[in-house]
Write a protein that binds this DNA or RNA. Structure first.
Lengths: 230, 230
DNA sequence: GGCGTTGTGTTCGCTGGCGCACGGTGAGAC
DNA sequence: GTCTCACCGTGCGCCAGCGAACACAACGCC
């Protein structure tokens, strides 16, 4: 078996890790796949190892806003940790790749059986909530360019690659803005030599520069994660 | 002893409720009191009975945005339920009134001792998180007038009174907007006969009208609460 | 090799909210 | 009775982002 490569699982005590992995099945996340729709019961819990997932809030008929991102540092299905089956958010695969998957019943049973596991996942719930709260502030105060930069950095961290597939259209959906707005912001970043892109293939050229262009939320998110699960 | 009048405590099984109340001390929340500053360790957990508390996120040097509100339907200190001591948010008293208070150590001990309590508070964490997520979307898409209406309704629910003390300045801080913007929105609501106010004393005249003017987030929040803790 | 589809660049007029600022007025302090 | 201060009304210029639209180029399909 390949190394686990999901931080939450790796941090579990040996016994719990083994038991959980025995219940996991490896699945491949495919781009744009919807793992869970709003208001529907969660069927599986996901622990990404290479792919990553965006959590999107919808309000009225508006496009949608990303409020959280889950890569191999986290999991999708935190609502189950809190004892709730329905997802309040849409879970959308943004980075294709490998992932562990557990059925809801098995997951609940393990959670009930292991205090250590529950305790750790509680902490992750906290971290993800902090990210969500930061997203609220970010929505309110930061300009598209800064938010775009932040989003690209977060994606790059989770894709473990400086190149990934993403269109302006999709970015607009994630940021809750117009596609044209993204084009303007992205082309500025390109002119500055921070990124380059062409028909959905985007490459980060200057990570440090991008970090400088990003809003403070990026650093804040990382700090919270490091403090509680680092 | 007066009736408990905090929904979370009331919903506990008899044994747990009695034990928790034995550890509680009654305190009076005073307007504008800061119960907990960002990044500092939480000292007490609060279960409001008459007063209520706002949770405010700060980003950079910007004014602040309210991302959650806690009245007698909830509690302040959810981070402790997740095993984290530091608060990610500022907790600010917005409605003065009575409240139960428990020390952190006592609270943790009770939480560890009672599965039923932990389970219920987990659910409340979920509800509060949903509220936070809604706040993010609300920030992004809704106009000041609609958000103001929502905020007034939420306050009224928690104040159990159609009259309360609130200035435009403070509302601006809560909504993360300019004071002048609040004045414009509030005076429109007044012209429509939905509210009346004068030098910090505000009265709701037409609750139904206000609900019609508010964004969908208000109804959504209530629905989530009712579904999970109703 | 033609054709529809998808991704990107750009324009135009509009508007909500911003920063800043000034003025008025009620209420309490002395 | 005056003074001060908190609270509220309003105005002005500005700008980010919006909605709607059009143009063009690259790619995939037949």
């Amino acid at each position: 078996m390949a190394p686990v490569q999901n931080r939450l699982i790796e941090r579990l005590p040996h016994r719990e890790r083994t038991r959980l992995l025995a219940l996991c099945e490896p699945v491949q996340l495919t781009l744009s796949e919807v793992l869970c729709e709003v208001g529907t019961p969660t069927r599986h819990v996901y622990f990404p190892t290479a792919g990553f997932i965006c959590l999107v809030k919808h309000v009225d008929a508006h496009p949608g806003v990303e409020v959280g991102m889950v890569g191999r540092e986290g999991m999708f299905g935190t609502q189950l940790v809190l004892g709730v089956v329905n997802s309040p958010l849409r879970a959308l695969v943004q980075g294709p790749g490998a992932c562990w998957r557990v059925g809801v019943a098995d997951f609940k049973a393990e959670l009930a059986a292991s205090v250590a596991m529950k305790r750790q996942l509680d902490r992750y719930v906290y971290v993800l909530t902090a990210q969500t709260v930061a997203a609220a502030g970010c929505q309110r105060f930061h300009l598209i360019g800064a938010r775009l930069s932040r989003w690209l950095l977060m994606s790059q961290d989770r894709a473990h690659d400086d190149h990934f597939h993403i269109t302006h259209e999709f970015l607009a959906y994630m940021l809750g803005v117009r596609r044209a707005g993204v084009t303007v912001a992205a082309s500025r970043l390109q002119r500055l030599g921070l990124i380059t892109y062409h028909r959905g293939e985007l490459t980060v050229l200057d990570r440090a520069g991008l970090a400088a262009a990003a809003c403070s939320c990026y650093a804040a998110d990382r700090a919270v994660y490091a403090e509680h699960l680092g």
